[in-house]
Design a protein around this nucleic acid. Structure first.
Lengths: 143, 143
DNA sequence: TTACTTTAGTTGGTGGCACCAACTAAAACA
DNA sequence: TGTTTTAGTTGGTGCCACCAACTAAAGTAA
């Protein structure tokens, strides 16, 4: 009697978890090079193409709103982001990257790309495409 | 002019990073159910089949030895692990899981397996096998 | 309009996590 | 023997994440 195709063995689960930690290690190292946490790095990533409200950042990162307050406080103190009031809702605070924030964000993105590429280096293209498919589905599930 | 097969596009890098966060989210949630951090969860995982020294835990988790001191302190306070002196080297402290630690570890492992399986659910078996291959290579690279 | 409710964000407090520097004790080495 | 290395702890710092409590503004209903 065989298990069905889409039931995973512990080995497969383990592989995915290990892979995840390998990726996180890349992120942690890149962040540390700029004296940032992975969370700060993620926030800068968000700000690359958006000017979200505090609450939107919290929703995206799945953090408490008060956690985002602290996060933005520290990033602002480093001159990476700036708070700006909304013009349509006086309760709302928008967060945007400063020039320096954008610059650091770009450097980080490049370093992360290099680091992840080196993880994938040597793997056959079809395997990598399979990962992209799996990721797309997993993200839908996790969201 | 085409890029060679083993150079990744930003999309591919992004997919892998997103996948990693999806996995971490599973781990974070499972850990939180037991009021533990992901690091504590990893340590319990190590102790499932080993009785390492403090330094070995530090090496495995890539943490400072002092971080492991605190980690073990808190786990010990919760009755999940115990310190035991080495019989051959008086400098060394061995860390072992208690009965309760093993029990919690087993529950966590089961919950993580379920959570990761649900991420992979519906993906074709060959794709999953590709991820396992990629993971094996990436872990060698990252190590 | 007024009164109630919801939403956005901050503050203060707690605890965990991770680091570094400095330290003690034991082992290894010369 | 005396020196160096290794194992682990302690104290201090800062970040991170949470919760509860709070203010202010917006939305809603009488």
């Amino acid at each position: 009697m065989q298990p069905p195709d889409d039931v995973q063995t512990p080995d497969q689960v383990d592989a995915l978890v290990q892979l995840s930690f390998a990726v996180q290690l890349v992120l942690t190292r890149v962040a540390a090079e700029h004296d940032l946490s992975v969370t700060q790095l993620r926030m800068l990533g968000i700000l690359r193409d958006r000017t979200p409200t505090m609450a939107q950042i919290a929703a995206y990162l799945e953090l408490d709103r008060s956690s985002v307050s602290g996060l933005v406080d520290r990033a602002e103190r480093r001159g990476l982001v700036a708070r700006r009031p909304s013009e349509t809702d006086a309760r709302v605070t928008l967060v945007e990257a400063t020039d320096r924030g954008f610059a650091v964000g770009a450097q980080i993105a490049a370093a992360v790309t290099r680091g992840i590429q080196s993880l994938l280096e040597g793997s056959p293209a079809p395997d990598i495409e399979a990962v992209v498919r799996i990721a797309a589905r997993a993200i839908r599930t996790a969201g």
